[in-house]
Amino acid sequence: MPVTCGPTAGASWDSKGFFGGVKGADLDRLARAVIDGEAATAGQLAEQALGEGLAADTILQDGLLKGLGVVGERFGKQEMFLPEVMMSAGAMQAGLELLRPHLEAGQSASAGLRGKVALGTVQGDIHDIGKNLVAMMLTANGFQVIDLGVSVRPEDFVRACREHKPQFVGMSALLNTTMPAMAQTIAALEAAGLRNGGLRVMVGGAPVTPEFAARIGADIYADDALEAVRLAREAVGR
């Protein structure tokens, strides 16, 4: 595995300069635990950092998310691979669970939930691996995910959006033969008047291209699960 050592050895991450060397080192270790996919260590370090009085939001930003950022970069460069990314998401999740009560106390802009995403594989398509990965990465990043499952009918996407009022609706398709269901779902959302209220449509899946996404009127096309997270974060401005 190419990822057993720290992300940017020697580089300082406490560039904001508002925490001291020891605590900075702790957050370095926390980031590294995320990169190495060590859930138990990530949990311990997050707890420790809280105990040392660091703000939950600082731990999230400068520990967990920094680590996940490195994971995303390395995944993009094919230096890390899916099983490792999943382990990292697990570690991120473990850390986030500990921070969550403190984050939801709402001391900062990035505290608490980033937003809600209703997610499903489109009608006629029962492939859930890509969709599950996106769900996992979004959850690990503090989004609330409403997983609608596989072969989700347009009307069920509509119903879920009415009920849960998410900021995003995410659609996945693995088959080129089921991609048209994405367009049908978008049409159904439009017909239901749901696209005026700030609901953003995100699409992805092996055969889906940015051109296709644009043509059917999707707001966001993501090439993989990590990009889905990055773009969703960008879209909510956090």
């Binding site: 088959l175 080129n176 033969t177 991609m179 048209p180 367009a183 049908q184 055969p207 889906v208 291209t209 296709f212 059917i216």
Partner: peptide, 10 residues
């Protein structure tokens, strides 16, 4: 033979 171009036009 798979020709599904994803156009949504059966």
């Amino acid at each position: 033979v798979n020709v599904a171009a994803g156009l949504g036009d059966v």
